[in-house]
Computed example of a mutant assay.
Amino acid sequence: MTEARESAGPNGTTHARHAPGTPCWVSLMVHDTAATQDFYGALFGWEFQPGPARLGPYARAFLDGREVAGIGQLPPDRNLPIAWTPYFAATDADHTAETVRLSGGTVGVGPLDAADAGRLAIASDPSGAVFGIWQTAAHLGTEITGVPGTPAWNELVTRDTESVVKFYKGVFGYELEPTVSADFDYVTLHIEGRPVAGVHGVGNALPRDRGPHWLTYFETAEVDEAARLVARLGGRLVRAAHDSPHGRVATVADPEGAVFSLIHAVS
């Protein structure tokens, strides 16, 4: 799951330009941005600065002065699911968006310019899972990983891997590494031999109220304590902390219902 983490020193790994197809940013659209910033600030130590307002009020989250994520405000008349959305790097957002359409996906927003930061589109795969496309300009994306409070991994939770991995391979050129197991349906997506994301087929265990979706994992120093803090801050526990081959993991939701996972990854 967290094979995509590069080795990092005590201050984490700082990234330059992301290779096309690499998850390069995560963003959350909510109704109450002030309360959401308070929640993630208390949980991860994030500080916030205004970002491009092309899609409405938007703030970038910083950790030790480096950008890690974005939080924007939904229009009051839009009753959309509240969810973390990963953005994948693209050399040409317009070309990638057109490839999404030709491959059976849908482009719901854009492509459009986010001031001088870059060009973006928001799309969904044929199963309905939402993701973003980011063509960098002034804004390179997430600047640091490998330390608490930073995105560690992105994983598509879907009914079965076979139905969607061809789509992502066609759009982003991923190399595919299936996990061969009778009871575990998983494909790791690679760019130039490096694992960058995963696709987890869960069959009928897929939540009926969510459908296929991308799940973001955030690094934390102590998963159990972080999960308890989520509850104290008004969120809730979705799946209790447990050990996995990749580290200790818990799945939680913030006060507006956005689901994400906490992980203390093994080296």
Results as ranks from 00 to 15, higher is better:
W214L: 07
S244R: 10
A42C: 03
M29I: 05
R5W: 07
V266T: 12
L176H: 05
R239E: 14
T91A: 14
L189T: 06
A115Y: 11
A59L: 11
A16S: 12
A93H: 01
A83F: 07
S103C: 08
I71C: 05
H18G: 00
I71L: 12
L102G: 06
G65S: 08
G51Y: 02
S267Y: 06
D113P: 03
T33H: 11
T158Q: 05
Q37C: 12
H95W: 03
W214N: 03
A8E: 00
T33S: 14
N11P: 02
L215H: 14
W153M: 06
A42T: 12
F131N: 02
F88R: 01
L74P: 08
P50E: 11
G110W: 01
T136Q: 09
F260M: 08
G173W: 03
P86R: 09
P57E: 15
R239Y: 10
L176C: 06
S7A: 13
L120D: 01
L176D: 03
V157L: 15
R78N: 10
H213W: 12
D32M: 07
G173P: 00
G170Q: 13
G12S: 09
E256S: 08
A231S: 14
Y58S: 07
T158A: 06
F167R: 04
P245W: 06
V100Q: 02
L237K: 03
S244C: 04
F62Y: 15
R66W: 02
E175M: 12
P52D: 09
L233Y: 01
E143R: 07
G12R: 04
D185R: 07
F39Y: 13
A117H: 11
G211W: 02
Y174C: 03
V196P: 02
D224E: 14
G257P: 04
H200M: 15
A90E: 02
R66E: 11
H95N: 11
T96G: 01
A35K: 14
E219K: 10
D92N: 15
T13A: 09
A258M: 10
A231M: 15
P20C: 04
R239T: 13
P126Y: 07
G173R: 00
R194C: 04
A97F: 05
P20N: 07
H15Q: 04
T36F: 08
A226L: 00
G257V: 06
E219T: 13
P86A: 07
G170K: 11
F260I: 06
G141P: 04
P23T: 06
A53Q: 15
M29F: 15
D125M: 09
P245D: 04
A221V: 09
R5T: 02
S127M: 10
P81D: 10
L262Y: 05
G198K: 05
E162N: 10
Y217H: 14
A152L: 07
P195C: 06
A19E: 14
R66H: 09
L189D: 04
G211A: 02
T216G: 00
T188V: 15
A240H: 13
V107Y: 02
V130E: 09
E256D: 10
G65I: 09
G170V: 02
A42E: 15
W153N: 03
D92F: 00
L120M: 13
E222D: 15
P10K: 09
A59Q: 14
H139T: 04
F39R: 00
G201W: 04
G170L: 07
D38K: 11
Y174N: 03
T161P: 01
S163E: 14
E192G: 08
E3S: 09
L80P: 01
S163V: 05
